[in-house]
Nucleic acid binder design. Structure first.
Lengths: 335, 335
DNA sequence: ATTTTCTATGCAAACGATTGCATGTCCCCT
DNA sequence: AGGGGACATGCAATCGTTTGCATAGAAAAT
C-alpha cells in the first residue's frame, strides 16, 4: 500500500535520492562507498522498496521487456522455445512478454504495434512469413528483431532456425534404407519458411536419391485439422505411396486421423515421418518417427542473439542454423 | 525512430497537449468538440503517434497489464487457460504478461515480486498451494488476485476452479458401472488444491459406492515423470487393482509407461481414467478416458473476475466452480 | 443589456527515477 | 605546506502524460 520511493529511502538513509538510485543498480554501485551502499540497500529492503518501472523506463527509454510473438500458442513446439527464451532473458533480469498473434498478417501487425507501444526493447518473432512485412515496423522504430523457427527471404533480421534440407534428407534416407521408393510429402503452408524449406528439402533429397519427388501436397496450416484434408488429397492423388514425410508432427497426426478412417495401418500399410519431435508423440499410436529439433536450444540462442543486439555487442545479421536429428520410433517400417 | 509525443501532435494540430490527451482517450473525448477531436486524431495518426506507456503509467499508476503466473508452462492444460485469459483481457485492451514460476515457493514469490515491481494491475495465479503465502504480497500492495485452476484454503482471493469431487464421482461411477470394484487413485501433489481435492473426491466417491478407498498414492508433481514412480508404488502396494483413476492426464501417461514396461495391457488388464482431457490424449494408445475440464472457459472467467476486481464493480470473494464432464475413450473397459 | 451558467480548452503541477555536471573532501606527492 | 588528483555525493533537469483547476467565450436567462 504505502508506495515507497527513492526519496523515502533517501530520507531514511540520510542520503540524496541519486545516491539511492546508484546504490540500487549493480553497475553503478561501485561508485559509492561500500558502507553507504550497504546501508542504502538495507534501508531499501527494510522499507520494502521496489522501483517504479514506469519512472525508470520513462527516463531511460528502456523497458527491460522483450516481446515474443507466436502464431499459435497451442502448437506444443512453442513451449520449449518459449522456455528457452525466458530462461535466457530471465538470467539477465529481462522479462518476456508473450503474445500470440495467429496467422493473419493484419492481426500480427496490430499485435506487434501494441508491443512496440509498450516500449519493448526487442522483439522475437516466431511468426515470420517468407515475405515478412512486420519487420519494417520494428526497423522503423529501431527495435532489434530476432526471428525464431522461421526466417524470411530478405535477411533483414537475425534468425535461429533449423536446417530443413538436412532434416528432410534424414527422413528420406531413413525411408530409402527401409526400402521405400514411393514417398510423398505432406507439406506445410508455403508462406512459412519452414513449409517452403521442407518442401524444397524433400524434393531435393528425393531427386538426389533418384526417386520421383512429385507426390506433394501443402496444407494450409501447421495443424492437425489442416492436415486431414491435405492428407486425403495426397493419398487420393498418389494411391500407391508406401511412405509419407510430413512437414510437421501435427500434420502427421492429421494423416493418422485419415489413415484410421480409411482403415489403413501404420506402419504396415504406410510409414509416416513427422517433424519436430514435439512432446507426447512418443506416446501416440504408433509412436511417431520424427525429426527432432532442439527447440529449447532455439529459444536460448534467439534470446542470446537478442541480448547481443540490444547491447550492440555484435553487428550485422546473423543466422544460426541448428542441426536436426532423426528419432526412429514405430511409425516407419521396412517395405 | 522519430519519437512523436503529445506535444508534437499538439503543435501540429494547433492545440494544447492536454487537449490531445483528452482526444486520445475514448472516455474523455466527449469533452471536446467533435471537430477538434477528429482533427487531433487525424494528426496523431498521420504523425504515427503512439503513446508512451511509461509516462502514462507513471501518471495514472496503471499499467494495463495483468500478470499470469503458471507453475509449468509445459503442462498443456495451461495453454487453453492462457488463451481464455488473453482473449478476455485483449478485448479490454489489457495485456497478459506470463511468467512460469515452477513449483518452488521461493521462486514463485520472487517471480510475483518481479511482476508487482512491473506495476501489474492484477495477478492471476495458477500456482496456488493450499496454504498460499504469496497472496499476502499482493494484498499488501493492494493488487487484485484471482486464482485459477487451484484455490487455497483461507479464501482470501477469488478463484475459478472445477468441481473436483464431481469429477472423481464421474470417474468412479463410470468404472463401477463397468464392473470394477478394486479401484486405485494415482494422486497429485497434496500441496495443490487439485491434488488434495481429487484425492478426497476419490475416497468420498469410493466410500459412497461401498468400495475400499484406501488404494491411493500421491505423486510429487503433476508430470509424466513423477507419475511413473508413484504408479509403480501404487501397483506394488495393491497388486489386484483392475482400474486406476489418475488425478491428471500426465500422471495417467506415467502410469501408461509403467504398464508398458510391465507388459500389462490397458484396458484389458487395467482400466485408466485421466483428468483434464488435455490436447492429444485422444491420439495416444489407448485413447484416454478422462474428465474434461473446460479450461478455456476457466481462463475467460478468471479474466472476467479480474476485470471486475480492477474496476471495483464487484466486491467480496467469489468462487466460480465449473462442472466437469466424463469423456469415455478406450482406456476403460468392462471388468 | 447585464448577469448567470455552461462548455471547451489552456495551464501547470505532478508522477518517480536517472544522470551529466558541479561541488566538496580527503589523500598523496613534491 | 600547498597544489593537484581522485573519489564520493549532491544538485537539478528531464523523460511524456494526465488531470484538477482556471479561464474565456458563448449561450441562456432575467
Amino acid at each position: 500500500m504505502a508506495r515507497v520511493t527513492v526519496t523515502d529511502v533517501a530520507k531514511a538513509a540520510g542520503v540524496h535520492p541519486s545516491t539511492v538510485s546508484r546504490a540500487l543498480k549493480p553497475e553503478t554501485r561501485s561508485l559509492l562507498t561500500e558502507e553507504v551502499a550497504t546501508r542504502v540497500l538495507a534501508v531499501a529492503a527494510q522499507l520494502g522498496y521496489h522501483r517504479n518501472t514506469f519512472a525508470a523506463g520513462l527516463r531511460t527509454r528502456r523497458s527491460e521487456m522483450v516481446g515474443v510473438v507466436l502464431p499459435d500458442m497451442t502448437n506444443p513446439v512453442f513451449q520449449p522455445i518459449l522456455r528457452g527464451i525466458e530462461e535466457a532473458l530471465d538470467a539477465e533480469g529481462l522479462v518476456a512478454i508473450v503474445a500470440n498473434a495467429g496467422t493473419d498478417p493484419d492481426r500480427q501487425r496490430s499485435v506487434i504495434q501494441r508491443l512496440l507501444a509498450r516500449q519493448v526493447d526487442g522483439l522475437i518473432l516466431a511468426t515470420a512469413a517468407r515475405r515478412e512485412t512486420s519487420i519494417d515496423l520494428c526497423l522503423a522504430e529501431n527495435v532489434p528483431v530476432v526471428l525464431v523457427n522461421r526466417n524470411e527471404t530478405t535477411h533483414r533480421a537475425c534468425s535461429v532456425i533449423t536446417d530443413d534440407a538436412a532434416g528432410m534428407g534424414l527422413a528420406v534416407t531413413h525411408l530409402r534404407e527401409l526400402g521405400h521408393t514411393c514417398i510423398g510429402h505432406l507439406g506445410g503452408p508455403q508462406t512459412a519458411s519452414t513449409g517452403a524449406g521442407r518442401l524444397k528439402g524433400f524434393t531435393d533429397a528425393m531427386t538426389q536419391a533418384g526417386l520421383d519427388p512429385t507426390s506433394t501436397v501443402a496444407a494450409t496450416a501447421f495443424t492437425r485439422e489442416a492436415g486431414e484434408p491435405a492428407a486425403t488429397r495426397l493419398l487420393n492423388a498418389s494411391p500407391d505411396l508406401s511412405a509419407v514425410v510430413a512437414a510437421n508432427d501435427l500434420l502427421a497426426l492429421g494423416l493418422y486421423d485419415v489413415l484410421r478412417t480409411r482403415r489403413l495401418r501404420c506402419p504396415d500399410d504406410i510409414s509416416v515421418v513427422g517433424h519436430n519431435d514435439m512432446p507426447l508423440v512418443d506416446m501416440i499410436a504408433p509412436p511417431l518417427t520424427t525429426i527432432r529439433i532442439r527447440h529449447r536450444e532455439m529459444g536460448l540462442q534467439a534470446a542470446r542473439l537478442m541480448l547481443d543486439l540490444m547491447r550492440k555487442t555484435s553487428e550485422g545479421v546473423v543466422d544460426i542454423v541448428l542441426r536436426p536429428e532423426l528419432i526412429v520410433r514405430a511409425s516407419t517400417a521396412a517395405r
